[in-house]
Design a protein around this nucleic acid. Structure first.
Lengths: 241, 241
DNA sequence: CGCTGGTTTGAAGGTCGTCAAGAAGGGTGG
DNA sequence: CCACCCTTCTTGACGACCTTCAAACCAGCG
């Protein structure tokens, strides 16, 4: 039992920042005690709503995003297992983004007051969570740079490089391959492109033997070439370095 | 003396979140005790550097940004007086962005350890700063949406609407006008456009009698029209609502 | 078997970037 | 005060990148 909690994916992540004591690990485990299964497409946070929900994604794929008039939307981030969602909005009056499951998923709802008490009692846990939040924000910033200043191909390559790195840190990717059940529509909303152009870009990447996305699997053929093309530097993802 | 500290622009901002006690105000004043004049163009933080510098902007204009190979850059945000810069990187190993003054400016360098001790002693001050940081992140997110999913005109209009709102909250803008010494090159780097296209967009805004930027002054001619055009909703900027 | 969600491709057009060059300030030194 | 710089703004022409519209294709599934 204690071991299972020790192995919580969030605990593993925070441990790379500071080693946590058994007591801290126990508190962390209590935070994410009640896993909740949600169906693909389920919306867990609605932009503008009050009452601050925080979730820890345990399994599956999801995205945080903002809708615009005219049915468009911009995806902010794809949380992966071990990531927190909604932390940023805890101190704001209303949630500044929506959050939905993209596949069937498992999340742990976190009670706001409980979280507050917990970080008050265990400040090191608080700063570990703050570190994770800082890292998430650095990812949003890099996303902004990606959309603002890189061409569609560079941008797409960069996106997959980052995703590969993140997944590999939690053991969900090898050097050459990982699961990625994102449709081209979803990718388009993340990359600030039309889905049709995403298709063309993916074909280019395939034809140049850089990367293939097929049946929810990304295969990386030429890591070096992708790195060069995208200008990817993963410094903002690692705690060491 | 105590009054001058009371009037610190950061104190005023944080006060809109939670009213601060005299002791907290005193601690806050000590944090930003040594104002430093910097010349226009001065770089205060370099992306990738270790040693975590935090600054509070007291006066003047500045920007945080990331450089890309090929001399391009993407501006992340324009801090205005009372804003903190570099807080996000405190817990990261290296700064994830650069920071430079755009005009002659005044900043207060903040000592990392001192800041830590301070928020440990005054937790409410800590959460006030965290609130400010959350608000800043919400702005980055909105910036991402802006670049990813809005056309050049909508995007530019939205940018100025947000800026007007922010400046007006600290008393640096009226309904109709505010100072804005940003060149079209700088605007281009912020909006993910070429400076030439920024020029074209500004002309459109001028010709449609929406907004004029001339000699470092923004004049808003049609607030309603701009709001409609940009789809601006300032909810993420206010503490109330 | 038809339906549905996703992928693929083509053609046409618009937004926006690039190249090039002139105009309009503002500051500095003679 | 004028000449000369530099930075910034402005405009035109051209082309590339990316979007939109339209339609075919494919696989999984009831």
């Amino acid at each position: 039992m204690a071991n299972a909690q020790f192995d919580s994916i969030l605990a593993k992540k925070l441990n790379t920042f500071i080693p946590l004591t058994p007591k801290e690990l126990k508190a962390l485990a209590e935070i994410q005690a009640k896993p909740l299964r949600v169906k693909r497409g389920k919306q867990l946070i609605q932009e503008g709503q009050t009452g601050h929900k925080v979730f820890i994604l345990q399994a599956g794929w999801a995205c945080s995003y903002k809708d615009l008039r005219g049915g468009q939307r911009q995806i902010i981030s794809f949380p992966i297992p071990g990531d927190c969602v909604g932390l940023r909005s805890v101190l704001l009056k209303t949630a500044d983004h929506s959050f939905s499951a993209l596949t069937d998923a498992v999340v742990s709802p976190v009670d706001g007051p409980h979280l507050s008490r917990c970080v008050a009692e265990f400040p090191r846990l608080g700063s570990a969570l703050l570190w994770a939040a800082s890292r998430d924000e650095a990812m949003v910033v890099e996303h902004l740079v990606n959309i603002g200043r890189r061409s569609a191909i560079e941008r797409t390559a960069h996106f997959f490089m980052e995703l590969a790195e993140r997944l590999s840190l939690i053991g969900l990717a090898t050097e050459a391959q990982f699961e990625c059940p994102l449709s081209q529509y979803v990718l388009a909303d993340a990359l600030g492109l039309s889905s049709i152009h995403v298709n063309r870009v993916l074909r280019h990447l395939r034809e140049q033997n850089l990367l293939t996305l097929r049946k929810g699997q990304v295969r990386i053929h030429d890591l070096n070439g992708l790195t060069k093309l995208s200008g990817f530097e993963g410094g903002y993802l690692n705690s060491r370095s």
